[in-house]
Design a protein around this nucleic acid. Structure first.
Lengths: 348, 348
DNA sequence: TTGAAAGCGCTAACAG
DNA sequence: CTGTTAGCGCTTTCAA
């Protein structure tokens, strides 16, 4: 291993000053005036020695490790978690913080991740990020109160911890508006049947656009099922088989859209000429690999990760007020990603 | 924040012993005999106080942080990285180590991640895991030599650092054997056209099975293109259009298989009755969502992550020899994942 | 079998 | 404006 690297002492010696001065200069300690010339000498000495602070010593002294714990459900199964990590990571780097990631299983019901939170606390993280796999409301482990925390993609049932979630309604509005702008008025909606915010939010967005554009709401154009490929296929099959079939489909997610693609193909409907489709989630693996490429709505995972860390930093610095933030979850935009699955309706 | 938590001192006091004894007992320091009764008293005291060691102090004293750095390319874009993280994480937890993950961009050519490695070293990680996005040979950043390291999914061009990679040949053998066992003899191979180990290894496995089963090799049944859906579609279209078309297709990866599915559908070939298909990679999002489910070969990402940490631990404990391991990369099995895309050929 | 005490490298009073 | 110095909580040598 490397030769025992230089310490603050060595820097002090080389610069011909005391360790105090070095510490002050290197940390930019406020309320401390050090002569410009001395500053420069210290910086030079540090550079020539390749000095880097010993984090352990710093941590011991300051009680801050510079570690942020990220508790994430199901890192493995979804690329979404990856985007959150990436956003959080980049923001963390900006602030010279390091992310410690702990993967957890998804918790059924009101189980909490108390054990995992404890592991993070034992590691003396300065704060924790708590990310769920999909937008929902959760009960938090009680020990999460021991440390500053921010929720990602979920809201705190108790309304105590700040949270950031996707703007489901807004995303749906973008999607359906896109369809309306292309000239569609008979727009089907293949919804999820779980009782989660996305289900309700996306449906609300759908209705909202219809209303705004004075398009009558037709119950026959809305169907719900588990948000997987096969159920999506089934729903689409049925809905597209009718004489008065929709000319466009807004799907709860890309997997359901994938099912709709197959249904369309079987019915001899060409996308987008006979049928336009918009998905939700922007799962690259699906959306970009379908023929034609699926126009869909992206979830702001990267941005949520970023927002969470930035907020945590403000909280730690006392620049943001905990209670203020926790009051209402922060909504982040879900932008439309245009590919090739939308066109004007044929008989238009 | 929590009340300043108990220290080793408090435990000592409560147990009526010295801090030395507490330290010895709690760390199970070898060559130190402590009376059973004293031991018990210490443990009890620790438990009642909810004592947990201060990592920073430990780290400062022992020069070991218990942190393992994981440098991973493109966490965001591929679920594969997630599996590696998961495997590494679980293994790390077993040894009371914490994973610090740094995401990096993929490096073109012989660029290295020197900066990222340095960031990890600055954080005083005890060792680093260096994971690439796909199996290949890399030049390592020089500073990786400063700390114990293990490569995941890539091999060190210089042959200095231990590495673990998938057994590409074995995986292909499983896939093609599965097809042969189903009764196929005209088996097409849609290969990647990059010069990477997977390309060569999977091809070698393909040929090997043909040889073993005395099936003549037919050049017309092998084609190569970029390993994406669209090129896969093109290749499959062409190969399946011939009169003497193969009855089964082994695809370099699931994305190409997805293209092959579409080609088959367009040609009116039903899977698996008219055409059997086997993929590679087991990308859940694709493989499980295709109709019918794609039989494919899984990459051992989880296992590689696990192996890497275990090996690192042995290295750190001096139980494994660096040079011995680095000599040849360790190969891990690629198991076949059977779904519904393979059946006996029709005219069999 | 147990304990006293010396630091690990750094920060931050406090003094000059 | 700069320096002296006392610990942060723990491990470990050495002595009892």
């Amino acid at each position: 291993m490397a030769v025992k690297s230089a310490g603050i002492r060595d820097v002090a010696e080389l610069a011909g000053v005391s360790v105090t001065t070095v510490s002050h200069v290197l940390n930019n300690t406020p309320h401390t005036r050090v002569a410009e010339e001395t500053r420069a000498r210290v910086h030079n000495a540090a550079k020539t020695l390749g000095y880097g602070p010993n984090r352990a010593a710093q941590a011991l002294r300051t009680n801050r490790t510079g570690l942020i714990g990220l508790l994430s459900e199901e890192i493995a199964t979804t690329p979404h978690a990856g985007r959150i990590i990436l956003g959080a990571q980049n923001a963390a780097r900006e602030h010279d913080l390091t992310l410690v990631i702990i993967n957890t299983e998804r918790q059924a019901g009101n189980g909490t991740h108390q054990g995992d939170v404890q592991a993070l606390i034992d590691r003396q993280v300065d704060a924790v990020l708590y990310a769920t796999m999909y937008h929902r409301s959760v009960s938090l482990p009680p020990n999460l109160g021991e440390v500053p925390a921010v929720l990602i993609d979920s809201t705190d049932r108790a309304g105590i911890v700040p949270a950031v979630v996707p703007d489901e309604v807004g995303g749906a509005v973008s999607a359906v508006s896109h369809l309306v702008e292309a000239g569609h008025t008979r727009i089907g909606f293949l919804n999820n049947d779980d009782d989660v915010p996305a289900t309700h939010g996306r449906f609300a967005g759908y209705r909202q656009v219809l209303e705004t554009n004075r398009i009558p709401f037709d119950e026959a154009l809305v169907a719900a099922a588990p948000s997987e490929t096969l159920p999506g296929y089934g729903l689409a099959r049925r809905m597209l088989d009718s004489a008065d079939r929709p000319t466009a489909l807004f799907c709860y997610n890309d997997r359901m859209a994938m099912g709709a693609y197959r249904a369309a193909m079987e019915l001899g409907l060409s996308i987008p000429d006979d049928l336009s489709i918009v998905g939700f989630d922007n799962q690259e693996l699906i959306a970009a690999n379908l023929f034609p490429g699926l126009t869909t709505v992206a979830l702001p995972h990267y941005e949520m990760g970023q927002w969470a860390v930035e907020t945590l930093v403000q909280l730690l610095h006392g620049e943001a007020v905990y209670e203020l933030l926790a009051d209402k979850p922060t909504l982040l935009d879900c932008p439309l990603v245009v590919r090739d699955s939308v066109a004007a309706p044929r008989n238009h």
